[in-house]
Each structure stands twice: as structure tokens, then as C-alpha cells.
């Protein structure tokens, strides 16, 4: 009798989508509710780790062709970019701004440049966690 991981893999396919959606919710709700870039990034990398547990490392690398080390660099670039963007308007470094916009579907929404900084945190956390886990898991 050959063993297989059918139950684990099928459940993972459903659960990963729920975890990813919940991490995005945590990420975007971070300004008004508990959450933010760090927890959202950790939840996303938790979903990716679940994929790594259920499937092997090559399948995940094929279906998600990200270089997580470059992701850390992009995250740092986002963080520095939003900080340095304030310098163009003659205000101190890391000064943020927000305004209300009437988006199509969403209605009146306040958009804040702190979200861009949070995207930087998010990408750094996902990149760092996945780099650590793939480096440890990949050495044979």
C-alpha cells in the first residue's frame, strides 16, 4: 500500500487561500484595527510555509517564482522611498500625508502614504521569513 498526502494537499489548497485573504485583510485593516504589515507578512509567509509542508520545495518554487531575497530589497526600497518622498515637499524625512478620494466601487476612502511604508514592512517580513525557511529546508 503506497502512502500519499492527498488529504493534506487538498486541505492545504483550500486553507492557503483563506490564510492569504486573511493576511491581506490584517494588512489593510492595520490602520484602524489590530494588525499591520508585520502580522500580515508573517501570516502570508505562514501560508507559504503550509504550502512547503504539503508539497515539496521545487513545486512551490515553480508555482511561486519569487526571489525572496530581491523581495527584501524591494521592501526596503519602498520604506526608504516613502521616507525620501517627503523631502521633495520640503518637510522632514518620513513625514506622511493622507487625503480623501472618491474611488469607483469603494466610495470615499482615505488613502495614506503610511500604507506604502507598510508594504515595505510586509515585503521585508515575507522575504526574510521565506529566505530563512527555504535556506534551512533546502540544505541537504
Amino acid at each position: 500500500m503506497k502512502t500519499n498526502d492527498l488529504i493534506l494537499q487538498t486541505t492545504t489548497k483550500i486553507a492557503v487561500f483563506i490564510i492569504l485573504l486573511f493576511s491581506l485583510h490584517i494588512f489593510f485593516a492595520g490602520h484602524y484595527y489590530p494588525g499591520g504589515g508585520f502580522v500580515g507578512g508573517l501570516l502570508t509567509s505562514g501560508a507559504l510555509v503550509l504550502l512547503l509542508l504539503a508539497f515539496d520545495i521545487k513545486t512551490v518554487a515553480n508555482s511561486l517564482p519569487f526571489n525572496f531575497r530581491i523581495m527584501i530589497a524591494i521592501g526596503l526600497l519602498f520604506a526608504i522611498g516613502t521616507g525620501a518622498g517627503a523631502l521633495f515637499f520640503n518637510v522632514p524625512f518620513l513625514t506622511h500625508a493622507f487625503d480623501y478620494f472618491n474611488l469607483p466601487l469603494l466610495g470615499k476612502t482615505s488613502l495614506h502614504t503610511a500604507v506604502l511604508f507598510d508594504i515595505g514592512v510586509y515585503l521585508c517580513v515575507v522575504g526574510a521569513t521565506m529566505t530563512i525557511i527555504q535556506t534551512i529546508g533546502g540544505s541537504e
Binding site: 488529504i7 493534506l8 486541505t11 483550500i14 486553507a15 483563506i18 486573511f22
Partner: peptide
């Protein structure tokens, strides 16, 4: 979130 927790535990705990 509570609704999602119910659904999620219902899916994952038996597995």
C-alpha cells in the same frame, strides 16, 4: 473573523 475561525477550525482540525 469569528465566522472565518469557525470555518477554518472546522476544515483544519480533523485533518
Amino acid at each position: 473573523r469569528v465566522l472565518l475561525g469557525i470555518l477554518f477550525i472546522f476544515i483544519t482540525s480533523p485533518v
